[in-house]
């Protein structure tokens, strides 16, 4: 035994975990999630391929019918695709969290004198990498097809950041589902059932005016619509309108409801 495993613990025996340790543990767990992406890059398939596939499909199938031409449809569509891609990327948070927690390594995390919240918080931070990739690819695809946002590059970056922040807020819903459901498959299934109406019953792909009255009401209350409109305002006209603030308020409500719920369930399980 060369390294002399001493009988006395090298750790301070005090049982208190402060803010600094919580942050340090969270960053370590975020680093772990990054390493996992590095070793299994195939988990990025959704954020790499979905924006490419959906942009192409929607542009060429609906462009002519909805806006008369592809060029006219792109300013409407790209913000819609961006929101859809990024919200479905946030779904993966819940699925991967569930998968992770089923593995033996989680038992070790639970037995370490570390901040209980770190595995959850770390995973949510690293998801920004996924959202960043999804956002960049969506805008790049739009650019390739001829989308030229009138407000310019800085507004596009600002809109991208708003989308990423919103995805992070929405990911708390799916993280919560990940906590309360038993298997990764069931998380995937239920999340998808939430995701489909949430993104399609919005103004993401089709102008609201073409829908029947009851649907217009639903669409107007859907936070996804406000996010889409806010992004359109920013990228197309360089404006921060009421939808921007409504989006922030809506996202804040989601985080205020689901973050404490998730943390509570997580702490009880961990």
């Amino acid at each position: 035994m060369t390294t002399a495993t001493l009988p006395i613990s090298t750790l301070p025996v005090n049982g208190k975990i402060g803010l600094r340790q919580t942050i340090r543990n969270t960053l370590t767990m975020a680093y772990r999630a990054l390493l996992k992406i590095k070793h299994t890059p195939d988990q990025l398939v959704d954020v790499l391929l979905q924006p490419i596939l959906f942009t192409l499909m929607f542009t060429f199938i609906f462009g002519g019918a909805i806006s008369g031409s592809i060029e006219n449809y792109l300013p409407l569509l790209i913000p819609g695709i961006l929101v859809q891609t990024i919200v479905s990327a946030s779904l993966t948070t819940g699925v991967q969290l569930r998968e992770d927690m089923e593995k033996g390594v989680f038992n070790r995390f639970k037995s370490l004198p570390m901040a209980r919240i770190a595995p959850l918080a770390g995973a949510l931070i690293t998801d920004f990498v996924r959202y960043g990739i999804a956002t960049s690819i969506t805008f790049a695809m739009g650019f390739l097809l001829g989308y030229r946002p009138e407000a310019g590059a800085l507004w596009v970056i600002a809109a991208g950041l708003l989308a990423m922040l919103s995805a992070w807020c929405v990911s708390w819903i799916f993280a919560f589902l990940g906590m309360i459901m038993r298997t990764a498959q069931s998380v995937q299934g239920v999340s998808f059932l939430i995701l489909m109406p949430l993104t399609f019953m919005s103004n993401a792909f089709v102008p609201v005016e073409t829908m029947p009255g009851f649907m217009q009401t639903i669409v107007r209350f859907n936070p996804v619509s406000h996010l889409v409109t806010a992004i359109r305002d920013m990228t197309n006209t360089g404006q921060i309108g009421p939808d921007f603030w409504l989006t922030l308020a809506g996202m804040a409500v989601i985080v205020l409801i689901f973050a404490p719920l998730t943390v509570n369930v997580y702490k009880r399980q961990a």
Partner: peptide, 11 residues
């Protein structure tokens, strides 16, 4: 633990 409490995906 009885089931490897290490991370399969990492080195």
């Amino acid at each position: 633990g009885q089931y490897a409490s290490v991370d399969e995906n990492l080195t």
